[in-house]
Simulated scan of single mutants.
Amino acid sequence: MTLTAEAPTTGTSTAAHTAARKRRKRSESLAGYAFLSPWLLGFVLLTAGPMIASLYLAFTNYNLFAPPEWIGLENFTRLFSDPNYQQAWKVTLTYVVLGTPIKLLAALAVAMLLNNAFSGKGFYRSSFYAPSLIGASVSIAIVWKAMFIDNGIVDQVQQFFGFQAGGWVGDPSRTMPMLILLTVWQFGAPMVIFLAGLKQIPSELYEAASVDGAGASRKFLKITLPMLSPVIFFNLLLEMIHAFQIFASAFIISNGTGGPARSTLFYTLYLYFRGFQDFQMGYASAMAWILVIVVGALAAVFFWSSKRWVHYSGEGK
């Protein structure tokens, strides 16, 4: 009798407890979404919304002064017959292929030097990192241009050592090396990441290699590079994406023309010309989406290839 009487009470209590738990879970979810709402609103209005709009505009003829007119794939087909578009890809890919590895090599070399114990190490770390804090700003591009113009400090130094006089800014064969030097000079950010990765390599590995008679080069190839491969992958991917986005320095140094002789006509600069000088926003949107697809495809290739050369601690390989 007692068991029969208590059974409904127990069932009711369990159901009430379940309902209360669901209400509590629902209120926690609502609170979470409330805290996330500023970010979600910003993402929809400032990122996802403009991306969807630009994807639509890529298939239209739109000049900012009239409603967009649907033209299908015409913008994309025009790209392949545009000589300036081809030149923009040539300049940009040259910058990415040359500038990115040189910058990372410089960052890794300095990080390995700073990883050693010596006095004043903190000062040197801060000094090497300082240029990265400024970034690719307009002020740095103006200073860099002043250094490499005719009778600038670089021209005066090369004349002092007996080299041919003349600035680099007006020489189409020297503008790319000048811009690569600018990006290499700002190697502080990847250097700090390399330095953090070097600190994580156990010193016992180097000690065991020394006992086995391994030299400095063998330690670097067999210990440092494999253990540092995740950091190398991260820096390589990040710097590759940044290299495709170069704009401010090329715009300032070329006076907004992409010259001399289209030697600084980078992809983003030509996109700016089409969109905000010629007001061909549909054409510029198509260019933007092609860039997104190319960078995304390269990133996918990086992740696919990383299975072959990136080694994480704890793997059984």
Rank of each mutant, 00 (worst) to 15 (best):
residue 277 Q to F: 00
residue 162 G to F: 10
residue 220 F to C: 11
residue 315 E to R: 11
residue 191 M to Y: 09
residue 199 K to Q: 14
residue 58 A to P: 04
residue 300 A to V: 02
residue 10 T to D: 10
residue 162 G to E: 09
residue 304 W to Y: 13
residue 30 L to N: 15
residue 144 W to R: 00
residue 33 Y to A: 09
residue 298 L to H: 09
residue 282 G to I: 04
residue 109 A to Y: 11
residue 207 E to P: 02
residue 220 F to D: 13
residue 10 T to I: 15
residue 47 T to K: 15
residue 269 L to Q: 12
residue 274 R to D: 00
residue 186 Q to C: 05
residue 12 T to C: 12
residue 190 P to C: 04
residue 124 Y to R: 01
residue 90 K to S: 05
residue 30 L to R: 15
residue 267 Y to D: 04
residue 9 T to D: 08
residue 56 Y to V: 13
residue 63 N to A: 02
residue 290 I to Y: 03
residue 256 G to T: 06
residue 224 T to I: 04
residue 203 S to P: 04
residue 82 D to I: 03
residue 5 A to C: 15
residue 266 F to K: 08
residue 277 Q to E: 07
residue 44 V to I: 08
residue 123 F to R: 03
residue 111 A to S: 10
residue 271 L to R: 04
residue 87 Q to E: 07
residue 245 Q to N: 12
residue 269 L to R: 05
residue 290 I to A: 04
residue 163 F to R: 03
residue 266 F to A: 01
residue 294 V to S: 06
residue 172 P to C: 11
residue 162 G to P: 11
residue 2 T to R: 14
residue 50 P to M: 10
residue 186 Q to I: 00
residue 268 T to Q: 12
residue 86 Q to F: 03
residue 173 S to E: 04
residue 171 D to E: 13
residue 23 R to K: 14
residue 235 N to F: 12
residue 32 G to E: 01
residue 107 A to I: 09
residue 308 R to I: 06
residue 13 S to V: 15
residue 97 V to N: 01
residue 315 E to Y: 09
residue 150 D to E: 14
residue 201 I to N: 08
residue 146 A to I: 11
residue 32 G to Q: 08
residue 310 V to Q: 01
residue 120 G to P: 05
residue 240 M to T: 14
residue 208 A to N: 02
residue 65 F to I: 14
residue 226 P to C: 05
residue 294 V to F: 05
